[in-house]
């Protein structure tokens, strides 16, 4: 068998590829009803669970002690910002806006936990402690996802 001489330099070989995973995720009872509330009622529901208080958005169990079940509680669509991350250069194919925007955590009035969402406008006035209100995707365009809340806007 003949030896093949290795070249002194080797041009790297590469291939770009987009890998797609078309998942269909089952929501379960609690997440599914919460999302239906956004879509069909334009209401934000929390679940009062063991040792966590009113959790928004809810899971079907307490994250603290894993006890199942709870009591549905409607919370307000207004709340206070507890954390802000201002994105100056949005990432294509991942971020929900192609213009600068902010991720926020919002503790809605009546909730004991905070919801992760976005603020799209008046970012210069946004800070921890800001009061915000949910804005909704129009009727007929809500799909039963967390993005049925379009964004949060600063309340003066």
């Amino acid at each position: 068998m003949k030896t093949f001489p290795k070249p002194a330099t080797i041009e790297p070989m590469s291939q770009r590829m987009n890998v797609e995973f078309p998942y269909k995720r089952s929501t379960g009872e609690v997440v599914g009803r919460f999302l239906a509330g956004l879509r069909d009622q334009k209401k934000i529901w929390g679940l009062r669970v063991s040792r966590q208080g009113v959790v928004v958005p809810p899971q079907s169990y307490s994250e603290v002690d894993a006890k199942a079940g709870g009591e549905w509680v409607e919370v307000a669509e207004t709340g206070v910002v507890t954390a802000v991350a201002e994105v100056t250069r949005p990432i294509e194919g991942l971020h929900p806006s192609s213009e600068p925007f902010a991720f926020v955590l919002v503790k809605l009035d009546g909730a004991d936990t905070a919801l992760a969402h976005v603020v799209l406008d008046r970012l210069d006035r946004l800070r921890v402690g800001s009061r915000v209100r949910a804005t909704w995707a129009p009727d007929g365009e809500r799909r039963g996802t967390i993005r049925d809340i379009e964004a949060f806007e600063i309340v003066d």
Partner: peptide, 10 residues
């Protein structure tokens, strides 16, 4: 996946 990944957090 439903609440956090879905809004595009990195």
């Amino acid at each position: 996946p439903f609440y956090a990944a879905a809004i595009g957090l990195d």
